[in-house]
């Protein structure tokens, strides 16, 4: 947006510094929440009916960790039961959830920053839609045993397209990356920074 920076409210003022810090915090919280949601969607995090405190450790061989139980879903190395929360710990699934969390956090930060400056430069609807559209596919990419999550929800006829489901996670990453690039082109600051 030509001339946008010159018309912005001074971001270095205390009010905006506080707003910027709040945006960073919200973005981090959103990223963390999304990571938890993703782990729940792929069934690595679940709630048990009975309380139990137990840590079961399985094979930690690299070959085992790299083994895929579904596209982009990797084997676990341990199972932690903490009360009613059960966490199947898979290092690679954790890495993917961290990547998604980082992308979601930067997108949320970018959106909040651009939103704060909306009077000067409204955020195009396309950018928001791309970011929001990027949130969904990864959550639906999760699967259990024979069927992806979407199929388990029970939408009739969807299972016939199960072969396409492996593309959901890459689609999420791509959409979130595109949306982030779009935000940067609109002038959104780098994550953790205020507008210069």
């Amino acid at each position: 947006m030509p001339g946008m920076r010159s018309t912005l409210i001074p971001w270095c003022s205390p009010v905006f510094r506080e707003r910027h810090q709040r945006a960073t915090l919200i973005a981090c919280a959103a990223g963390g929440f999304y990571a938890l949601l993703y782990l729940y969607a792929i069934d690595d995090l679940s709630l048990a009916d009975l309380r139990e405190w137990r840590l079961r450790i399985g094979s930690v061989e690299p070959e085992h960790m790299l083994r895929m139980r579904a596209p982009f879903l990797f084997e676990g190395v341990a199972l932690l039961s903490a009360g009613r929360i059960v966490w199947l710990i898979s290092p690679l699934n954790l890495a993917i959830s961290t990547l998604l969390a980082a992308l979601v956090a930067t997108n949320v930060h970018g959106m909040l920053s651009l939103h704060a400056a909306r009077n000067q430069c409204p955020v195009p609807a396309g950018s928001r839609a791309t970011a929001l559209g990027g949130l969904l596919p990864a959550l639906l990419a999760g699967g259990a045993c024979c069927a992806p999550t979407l199929v388990l929800i029970g939408i009739p006829g969807l299972a016939a397209y199960a072969a396409l489901f492996p593309w959901l996670l890459p689609a999420s990453v791509l959409l979130l990356l595109l949306s982030r690039l779009w935000q940067r082109r609109l002038g959104a600051p780098a994550f953790g920074r205020a507008f210069p």
Binding site: D43, S46, R56, L79, V86, G154, A159
Partner: peptide
């Protein structure tokens, strides 16, 4: 392998729930 063997991803036979309920729909 590490799995949460206390959870059935499709439902439950005890009590009868989810995918295993006679009137429920099939996936494929």
């Amino acid at each position: 392998f590490i799995r949460n063997y206390r959870r059935d991803p499709y439902g439950s036979y005890n009590p009868l729930e989810g995918y295993y309920v006679p009137d429920s729909g099939r996936f494929f």
